[in-house]
Nucleic acid binder design. Structure first.
Length: 246
DNA sequence: TGGAATGTTGGAAC
DNA sequence: CGTTCCAACATTCC
């Protein structure tokens, strides 16, 4: 559930709770004072990268699903929610196995919306500038850097690199300008494809690289690296058609 | 059925 | 003192 597009889906589902008052807040979270939430109205629902944000008049709830987190709407589908918010008419939001935090600062001070690949104010030139500053970093690590590509996760990383035919262990500073531009463009483009496929419950069938064994372009076995780069995440790539720049 | 995985943090270690 | 490494968190699937 964790990559950026999935959080956008949640945000859109949560829009129907805007203007509704929290009647009760329960759950096993210890990091927030649940009493502060009661009788507060949801003013807005936002997302930044993998963060889901529920805005109340005086504070914002930040939900991060980590690796295992999940949610359900209205019906509680699992035991021991981390946080449950009850509304009138039996409506509810339930969050499981996630990190819940309270934000009291102005969101615009904390979040650079232009760094979120799913955001309408996504700024490719800023991403390019950030990448130029870290030329020796492996591209696989740059895609997972939330300060550059907020919302991109390991599935998107593998798919983007396959699409643009770049070996994950290429140094970002060695990419020709056109490839660098492609990297930035595809990070956003693929994320929106991911969003549409996920909405249609057909995400997996569109995977070309992630968890795949054979390269669909070359028909030869993919290389699988269990813990690649500084981020130590799974990599699936073709040693033939994904070029190594170094 | 043990191990690994769509992720991040915080503190130890160097 | 800055950087790097690793355990911890906690659920689901194969």
């Amino acid at each position: 559930m964790p990559e950026g597009p999935s959080i956008v889906i949640l945000k859109e589902q949560a829009y129907s709770f805007k203007g509704k008052k929290i009647l009760e807040a329960t759950g096993n979270t210890t990091l927030i004072d649940k009493a502060l939430l009661v009788n507060q109205k949801i003013v807005e629902c936002k997302s930044w990268g993998k963060h889901f944000l529920i805005c109340l008049p005086k504070l914002t709830l930040r939900i991060h699903f980590m690796l295992f987190g999940s949610y359900s709407i209205n019906e509680q589908t699992k035991p021991n929610p981390r946080l449950s918010l009850q509304f009138a008419g039996g409506k509810a939001l339930h969050f499981y196995a996630c990190s819940v935090r309270m934000i009291t600062e102005d969101l615009d001070e904390i979040y650079d919306w232009s760094g979120d690949v799913m955001n309408e104010s996504w700024n490719p030139s800023k991403a390019r500038k950030k990448l130029k500053a870290i030329p020796d970093t492996l591209v696989c690590d740059t895609l997972l850097d939330q300060a550059i590509f907020a919302g991109v996760g390991n599935i998107i990383k593998n798919e983007v690199l396959f699409r643009i035919r770049v070996h994950p262990e290429s140094k970002v500073g060695k990419l020709p300008p056109r490839k660098l531009a492609e990297l930035i463009k595809e990070a956003r483009l693929y994320s929106f494809n991911f969003l549409e496929w996920k909405k249609a419950f057909e995400l997996r069938k569109h995977w070309l690289a992630y968890t795949k064994k054979i390269c669909p372009r070359c028909n030869i076995p993919f290389i699988k690296v269990p813990h690649q780069g500084k981020t130590k995440r799974r990599a699936f790539y073709c040693g033939n058609c994904q070029l190594l720049y170094r």
